[in-house]
Design a protein around this nucleic acid. Structure first.
Lengths: 202, 202
DNA sequence: GTCTATACCCGGATAGAC
DNA sequence: GTCTATCCGGGTATAGAC
């Protein structure tokens, strides 16, 4: 019976999940680039051969991490955009949630965009990523008066804006103050508002 | 006397520059992550020890590549935004130029943003990056009626928008069609226009 | 300024025992 | 499902000769 508050290590119960958890820890500590199966194995107290029973190779484990990332991102984003009623507010909330997710779940975000994965190769990942994208489409299409092509264009634009702010923030381009995350998340949300207002008045 | 059209290899003339050129080739071929001094040395026909006379380590060479990237980016962006007269057009041109640069000079762009460099550690790089940023400020401040804080905010927003489109495009999120580059560059430029119009009508 | 040689460390991945 | 053992390849970085 594991003590509460004591981080539980691998108990020969579920190595795949333990590997994913450990991968996230390691990515948090040293970045995706230097993540290795060997180090994850060491930290879990299993040998380097063990992971290969569950994942074909390093990339397949990273893809599993990325898939979890996409699922969590979808949840986090919906939590910030789903409470809104107006479609413009939903898209602005999406951008805010996206930026916050990138920073608070740095490792997951890195697995999603910094691992150099060939996404089409991993169906689970592709499907999970689709869920994120699909959050943006309905409100975007609504704002475009039902025009699906224009809505898709707007949705991608909002995604790009959110992504740009998130990347700049992670990269330190905004500096590293304490309230910086909220400030930039607000900036992203404001940018989406401006963008929509400007677009509708074209 | 090197034949015209025949790519010149290293002639014991300028190893530092030759290393930078070769690094760019290699990054183009396999990405920054897998770039190594060893392979660059091999390709140039020098031993692995030679580069260490000129660069302290791998990161210092990558920083030199990144610094060149920033200088070239500043030139490329000015070429697309400097011909315009209206500040809004200048910022839209900047976004278009940024996206085009990211794709046409993929390796340089990767050195700038994908190498995980501690930018403050490399003064040349920081200075060159500053030049890029400084392109956006004057028109942004002008659009904000001289308000420097608001101008800085707008400039960063435009940069983030351009960056987001560029990253999504490189990542394949827009698909990989032939006219995709121009299409997305146009989308980025349009987004900046919309953003500015919306912002001014707040 | 470059080479030879080398020490060192690390990761990926597999075969075969248990 | 995990371990032991091992092979293989690769990169970083240095010392010392030329």
């Amino acid at each position: 019976m594991p003590l509460p508050g004591k981080k539980r290590r691998y108990h020969h119960g579920d190595l795949p999940t333990a590997l994913i958890d450990t991968a996230i820890e390691l990515i948090d500590e040293k970045g995706v680039a230097s993540f290795s199966l060997a180090e994850a194995s060491r930290r879990l107290g299993v040998t380097v051969a063990a992971p290969y029973r569950h994942f074909a190779d390093r990339d397949e484990l990273l893809a599993a991490v990325a898939a979890r990332a996409a699922r969590e991102a979808a949840v986090a984003i919906r939590a910030e955009s789903g409470t809104e009623d107006a479609p413009a507010e939903q898209l602005a909330g999406l951008a805010r949630g996206y930026v916050r997710f990138a920073v608070t779940k740095r490792a997951l975000f890195q697995a999603l965009f910094g691992a150099g994965l060939d996404k089409p190769k991993y169906p689970d990942l592709a499907a999970a990523a689709e869920q994120v994208a699909s959050t943006a489409f309905p409100p975007a299409i609504e704002l475009c008066g039902g025009d699906k092509a224009a809505g898709a264009d707007l949705a991608m634009t909002v995604g790009a804006v959110a992504h740009g702010f998130a990347m700049f923030l992670l990269d330190g381009e905004f500096g590293t103050g304490d309230g910086m995350v909220d400030k930039v998340a607000g900036q992203a949300s404001q940018a989406v508002h401006d963008l929509i207002r400007g677009r509708l008045s074209r």
